Simulated scan of single mutants.
Amino acid sequence: MTTTLTRPATTSAGSPAPDQPAPTHALSVRDLHVGDPSTGHDIVRGVSFDLPRGGVVGVVGESGSGKTLTCRAVLGILPEPFAVTGGSVEVVGRDTATLTPREWTGLRGSTIAAVFQDPASYLNPSIPVGRQVAEVLRVKLGLRRRAARERSLELLAAVQLRDPARVWAQYPFELSGGMLQRVLIAAAVAVEPQVLIADEATTALDVTVQAEILDLLAELRASTGLALVVVSHDLAVVAQLCTEVLVMRDGEVVEQGPVSRVLHDPQHDYTRLLVREHEQYGLERFLGTDGGELR
């Protein structure tokens, strides 16, 4: 990393009270159900996992398995008419069901953030990308214009964009997909959140750029203690980056455990099917030959 990221002070919405011990887990999901309250039909049923500080949990499954709804429930951004219909979500020890809209706004970005599949959809096409990163710093940290510009340049360098000053002044249409994803990651980690959800963040990228983004996420985790939730339909992505994995199908977790165990010795028929489908793409190169270690 060319720039050291230091965690700024968090808002009261994102931290426990000074006299309370720090929570063990950055994120804790318990028996989460998501559905349409008007019909009583749940799309996501009974998802549970703990994400320790600095940990990496993968969520895999085909389209429609409930991966993205689970993540949006954790972020508090479920689309209508969906809502959390059961269970609980705790972010650094705070039960999100108790948060006001203002507290949710304070929590997102400063404590928990996300990067999604299509970065161009989350960037304003009429504003230079550097200004958009700087705006996050101005809103969340109250930095003045010059300080926000300097810090945003540091962030663009930290996500390994060449010539950050030039990129800062460019518009989204002038950048490649991989560069846009790096900009979005810079914005997401601008206030040093403790949890980052990467929802299919590398799906639209070619293999080389995908590997670079995964390496970048691993480096950010190592340098800042960032906890990651990596959502993907690609087992190779999960094998490369994660230590724990949830396999989802039809809104439920069908298998869960250490990546090395689940991918080497899958117990559920659906997990076996996923592993077989991915073996032809070289999944084994991300797994140790002894069946217990990840490379």
Rank of each mutant, 00 (worst) to 15 (best):
V230I: 14
F286C: 10
G177V: 15
D50Y: 10
A239Q: 06
R261V: 15
E279N: 11
L175C: 02
A9C: 06
L175W: 06
M1Q: 14
F116Y: 11
G130C: 09
A211F: 12
R182E: 04
G109D: 09
G64Q: 06
C242W: 02
G142K: 10
G130E: 07
G291N: 06
K67P: 01
W104T: 02
A147I: 10
Q210M: 09
A187S: 10
A148L: 06
T105G: 13
D19F: 12
T96E: 01
F286V: 04
E219L: 10
S223A: 13
V139Y: 13
V189L: 00
E293S: 15
L155R: 08
Q132K: 01
P101I: 06
R102L: 06
L294A: 04
G35A: 07
V262L: 03
L78F: 04
L273G: 05
V129M: 02
V159R: 08
V230T: 11
L196Q: 11
V189F: 07
A190D: 01
S232T: 06
S65W: 05
V60Q: 08
G251R: 02
S176F: 03
L143T: 07
V238S: 04
D199G: 03
L228K: 08
V195W: 09
T208G: 04
I213G: 01
G291L: 00
P79T: 10
G93N: 01
A204T: 12
V254A: 09
F286D: 07
V237T: 08
W168T: 02
I127F: 02
L216Q: 03
H25N: 15
V133G: 05
R30I: 11
L220G: 00
E200P: 12
A222Q: 12
F173Q: 12
F116H: 10
E279D: 14
S88I: 01
L196D: 10
H25K: 12
Q160T: 07
E90Q: 14
Q194Y: 09
D215M: 05
L75I: 07
Q210G: 03
L137S: 05
E279G: 09
S223P: 08
P52C: 07
Q20K: 13
G66A: 01
V229T: 09
T203E: 05
G76W: 00
H278Q: 14
Q132G: 04
T289N: 13
A218V: 15
V74A: 06
C71E: 03
R7G: 12
S121F: 02
V247Q: 07
Q280D: 13
P37L: 05
R53Y: 13
L246K: 02
R221F: 01
T202D: 09
V230M: 07
S63I: 11
V92M: 14
V229F: 02
L246S: 05
L27V: 10
D290H: 01
G40W: 01
G46V: 02
I185K: 03
F286S: 12
R295V: 15
V115N: 08
S223E: 13
P172T: 04
